[in-house]
Each structure stands twice: as C-alpha cells, then as structure tokens.
Write a protein that binds this DNA or RNA. Structure first.
Lengths: 204, 204
DNA sequence: TTTGACCTCTTTTCATCGTCAAGATTGGTA
DNA sequence: TACCAATCTTGACGATGAAAAGAGGTCAAA
C-alpha cells in the first residue's frame, strides 16, 4: 500500500497496481470503456509505463482473464468443499460458487467467456477454463460413477450449460429484472436444484 | 445493388448499407474491432457520412442488436411452428431455432446478450429480448398448463438458461472444442431433450 | 421553370487512444 | 565508485469518434 506521494521515480509494484486498477476499470466502464491510458492514470503513472510490464493491452486483459479463471475455480471449489453429503449437493455447490463469482465480477466474467477472450488467449495459447471443466467433470463423475462416458459427458454439458446460462441471463437483466437479490438467489438455487436432479436422473 | 461507380454524390440507401456492412464487420473483427470508419469505408463513403443516419457508433450497434432480436425470435418461431405434436417437442424446437441463429451470427449474438448491449439500449429504452421471453413463456405454459405461476416461471428460467448456456459455451469453444459440427448438433439436441424432459417432469 | 429550403455527403479539425522510440532516473552489482 | 539494466517519462505517429462547416443534390411551392 504505497500512499500517493510515497513513491519516487519508480513505482515499486506497478505490474500489480495495473492489474488492480485494470480490474476496477473493467467493472466500472465495461470492456469497451477499458483503456490502457486510464489504467496508467489510476496507477498514477505515465501513459507509456505499462508497456514495460505488459506488451499490449491484450496482454493485460489476458492476465485479468487468467486470474479470473483461477478465482472462479477457487470459488467453485470452496462452495463445493463445504458440503459433505451427497455428490449431487456438491454439484449444486459448484453452481453456487460459479454464480457468486460471476455476480461479484460481472464484466470480468463476461470477458472470460467472450469471443474476445479467445482472440486474446490464442496468442498466449492458454485455455483458462480447463480448471472449471475438470472440477465439474470430477463431481459429475461422482454422481454418475457407473454411467457410460457419453452419459457423463452429456451430464457435464448439461450442468455447465444450466449454471452458465442462468447467471449470464441474470447479469444481462433478462432473468429477474426487478427481483430483489434475495428472490433472485432463490430462483438461481431452484435452477441448480433442477439441474442436479436431471443429472442424477440421467444415471438410469 | 449499386455498383461502386453507379452512384453520384448521394448514396441512395446509406443507412441500410451501413447496417449490412456493420453486421459483416462485427462478425469479421468482433466487437473490439468494430469501427465506424471501417463501416463507412466498406460502404464506400466518407468517414463522417454515417453521422447523418446514426447519431453515434452505439446508435448503429443498437440497430444491429434490434434486428438481431427480431431475427432470433423469427428463427425460434419458425423451428417451433414446423412441429405439430407435443408442446414439449415445440420447446425443443425453440431451442433449435435459438441455437441456429446464434451459430450463424456468433458475434452479434454475444453482443445482444452482453453488458454493452444494456449500456447501449438503456439510452434508447428498448428491451429487445422481450419477444424471446414471451415466445418461450407461451410454449412453457402449454407444457405446464395446469401448474402454478411459480412453477411455470421456474421452468421458463430453466429452459432459457439451458439453451442459452449451451450455445454460449459452444461459441466460446468450451463445449465440443474439437467436435465435428455434426457431433456438436447431437450434443446440443441431447441437452435440449434433457431440458424438455425436466420441464415436463416439473408438472407433477 | 425557377427558386429556395432541406437532406445527404465531404472536408477539416480536435481530443483521445495504442504503440513505438528516445531520453531521464534509479537501484543493484561488480 | 562506476557502470548497467530495469523502470519510468516525454514526445511522436497513425487511427479513431465526434463536431463543425461547406459543397452537392433533391424536391416542392411559387
């Protein structure tokens, strides 16, 4: 935590400061309002300083996406781990963690799952969603331990699609536009419960 | 179809030409590569000409989004209408139409359901997804004619979330990355079938 | 037919953006 | 201590969205 005046010519930890201010800026102004120069201003640094830490704007965005996926999987894992009982309940837990992260970081979440993210990542060869996929596949496999690979894959498709679709539509205002946050959580849990039930049922 | 040389000082139908070239550009370069000046170039017109038809870039994008929603509902309706039998089958048909539009217009589809779209539309007060919501609510109501309002709302949430989530994840490459188009359609239909079955089952 | 108002398009200008090149400053190391 | 590499600043370039001002074309009223 450097106070504004406390630094001289060198910043000290500009790379980290840019990640922080960039993330804030992304949520404030959206992807189209995201500007490298504004990131620099918020970090109280000249407009060309970021170039020494990120080769381009896409490079900074790629870092934000990378960290976003790490946090997303952590959030899912945390929610799932606090549930001891049924694997199906853990599947709901994954969804709760997924939606919690998305609700807390709507713009970043959208960026992570946008075509722009693919364009950005393709230069770096990274596929950040693999952690999410693995985490979910593992829990689905618990629920459907005795099912065929195809059934399990389709159940994983279905589970991911439901939780991703629900929170995406909520963030865009298409679902629960005037609902209270409380009521919305109830609707989300209902969707997750229906999803888990469908996955369980696909066993037979 | 005006040939390049066939026009004089006036374009004739620049507004429509900008919509066409803008839509193409959006799919070619993505939302972050979308440029008013490039739209103008593709319409073979000076960079300031669009201002007389669209007050700003957001204005043009809003028009693209508006038309996108009209086409999306039309595509859903067309697929649903060709199915005569069970209401549940029509629900799957809606999903097929939904995914077909999204697959044919991936960038536009993402824009329609992005936070940027909300930002853009809020200036125009338009909520383009209402047609989709109504269409789907109607079919869900057929399937669940005797259910309570809450059950029907949750079924509608669930149905929309599943089809939206699935196609969104496909477009981003998270589902079926190396699948053939044929295999992917099968996976999509499986997800839609599971969704319809769950909706039907929620009746009791 | 003439005229004049109005639309459409172009040219010019301005502030801002991403990126690059060159120079200033600093901290560590030999 | 003296150098060197990393860090940051300044200045420049081309591109962009938007606004202003002027040129070209259309069309209806006189």
């Amino acid at each position: 935590m450097t106070t504004p005046k406390a630094r001289g010519y060198h910043h000290g930890d500009l790379r980290e400061a840019l990640v922080v201010s960039g993330r804030k800026l992304l949520e404030d102004k959206g992807i189209r309002g995201f500007t490298l120069r504004e990131c620099a201003r918020r970090a109280e640094v000249s407009h060309a300083a970021p170039a020494h830490h990120f080769a381009s704007m896409d490079d900074l965005l790629a870092e934000l996406v990378r960290r976003g996926f790490a946090e997303l999987t952590a959030s899912m894992k945390a929610e799932a781990d606090r549930i001891e009982g049924e694997p199906a309940a853990r599947l709901v837990g994954l969804g709760v963690g997924y939606m919690a992260f998305a609700a807390a970081n709507p713009a970043l979440f959208q960026l992570m799952f946008s075509r722009e993210a693919n364009r950005i990542e393709s230069k770096h060869g990274d596929a950040g969603a693999d952690g999410v996929r693995r985490l979910q596949a593992a829990v689905v496999d618990e629920v459907l331990a005795h099912a065929s690979g195809e059934v399990r894959q389709r159940a994983a498709d279905f589970a991911w699609a439901t939780m991703h679709g629900f929170i995406t539509l909520v963030l865009e205002g298409e679902i629960g536009g005037r609902d209270s946050s409380r009521a919305l959580k109830t609707r989300g849990l209902a969707a997750l419960a229906a999803m888990a039930e469908t996955v369980v049922r696909s066993a037979r």
